[in-house]
Deep mutational scan, measured.
Amino acid sequence: GLEHMADEEKLPPGWEKRMERSSGRVYYFNHITNASQWERPSG
């Protein structure tokens, strides 16, 4: 619901949600550090 939507907005600075086109899996990418990970970043 709306709570989940708001929660997605609160990623740490630099992080954004991305989708891997080949598999459709969602991952997280940090455009500041060029880091990427499957787990939702905390902090």
Score class of each variant (00 low, 15 high):
Ala35Tyr: 07
Arg21Gly: 12
Arg18Ala: 04
Met5Gly: 10
Arg25Val: 05
Phe29Val: 05
Pro13Trp: 09
Tyr27Arg: 01
Gly14Thr: 02
Lys17His: 04
Leu11Ile: 06
Asp7His: 10
Trp15Met: 00
Arg21Asp: 11
His31Phe: 14
His31Arg: 09
Asn34His: 13
Lys17Tyr: 04
Gln37Leu: 03
Thr33Lys: 03
Met5Arg: 10
Arg21Gln: 15
Arg40Tyr: 10
Asn34Cys: 15
Gly43Asp: 13
Asn34Gln: 13
Ser23Trp: 02
Glu39Asn: 05
Glu20Cys: 15
Glu39Met: 05
Arg40Ala: 08
Tyr28Met: 00
Leu2Gly: 14
Pro13Phe: 11
Phe29Gly: 01
Pro12Tyr: 02
Trp38Tyr: 14
Tyr27Pro: 01
Glu39His: 08
Leu2Lys: 13
Val26Glu: 13
Pro41Ser: 01
Lys17Phe: 03
Val26Asp: 07
Glu39Asp: 09
Lys10Asp: 15
Gly43Trp: 15
Pro12Ile: 02
Gly14Ser: 03
Glu9Phe: 07
Ala6Lys: 10
Pro13Arg: 06
Gly1Tyr: 12
Arg21Thr: 15
Leu2Arg: 13
Met5Tyr: 11
Met5Val: 12
Ser42Cys: 15
Glu3Ala: 13
Gln37Ile: 04
Asn30Met: 01
Leu2Asp: 11
Gly14Phe: 07
Asp7Ile: 10
Asn34Ile: 04
Thr33Tyr: 06
Trp38His: 06
Met19Tyr: 15
Glu16Leu: 05
Lys17Thr: 07
Gly24Trp: 01
Pro41Glu: 01
Tyr28Asp: 01
Gly14Met: 04
Glu39Ala: 05
Ser36Ala: 11
Tyr28Asn: 00
His4Asn: 12
Gly1Asn: 11
Met19Val: 15
Ser42Val: 12
Gln37Glu: 03
Trp38Gln: 06
Asn30His: 04
Lys17Pro: 06
Met19Asn: 06
Met19Phe: 14
Leu11Ala: 01
Ala35Arg: 14
Ala6Thr: 12
Lys10Phe: 10
Gly24Val: 02
Leu2Tyr: 14
Arg25Leu: 09
Thr33Ser: 06
Arg21Lys: 15
Ala35His: 14
Gln37Trp: 03
Gln37His: 02
Ala6Trp: 11
Arg40Gln: 07
Gly24Glu: 05
Glu8Ile: 10
Arg25Met: 06
Gly24Ala: 04
Glu20Gln: 11
Asn34Ser: 08
Gln37Asn: 02
Pro41Ala: 00
Ile32Pro: 02
Gln37Pro: 00
Thr33Asp: 04
Met5Lys: 10
Gly43Ile: 13
Ser36Arg: 14
Glu16Phe: 04
Ser23Val: 03
Phe29Pro: 02
Arg40His: 10
Glu39Lys: 05
Ala35Thr: 15
Asn34Glu: 06
Tyr28Trp: 05
His31Asp: 05
Glu9Gln: 09
His4Gln: 12
Gly14Gln: 04
Ala6Phe: 13
Glu20His: 14
Ser42Glu: 12
Asn34Tyr: 06
Pro13Tyr: 12
Ser42Ile: 15
Glu8Trp: 01
Gly1Trp: 10
Val26Lys: 04
Pro13Ala: 08
Pro41Thr: 01
Gly43Gln: 13
Ser23Ile: 04
Lys10Thr: 14
Arg18Phe: 06
Ile32Lys: 07
Glu20Gly: 06
Thr33Leu: 05
Pro41Phe: 01
Ser42Pro: 08
Met5Pro: 13
Ile32Val: 09
Glu3Met: 06
Glu16Arg: 03
Glu8Cys: 15
Arg18Gln: 04
Val26Gly: 03
Arg40Phe: 11
Glu20Thr: 09
Leu11Arg: 00
His4Met: 14
Lys10Trp: 14
Phe29Glu: 04
Gly1Asp: 14
Ser22Met: 09
Ser36Phe: 10
Lys17Asn: 02
Ser23Gly: 05
Lys17Ile: 10
Val26Thr: 08
Lys17Leu: 09
Pro41Cys: 02
Phe29His: 09
Leu11Asn: 02
Leu11Pro: 15
Ser22Tyr: 07
Glu9His: 08
Glu9Gly: 09
Gly1Met: 12
His4Val: 14
Met19Lys: 09
His4Ala: 12
Glu39Gln: 08
Asp7Asn: 10
Ser36Leu: 11
Lys10Gln: 13
Pro13Asp: 08
Arg21Trp: 08
Leu2Ala: 13
Ser22Val: 11
Gln37Ser: 06
Ala35Leu: 14
His4Ile: 14
Arg40Glu: 05
Lys17Asp: 01
Glu20Lys: 04
Asn34Met: 11
Leu2Glu: 14
His4Leu: 14
Thr33Pro: 00
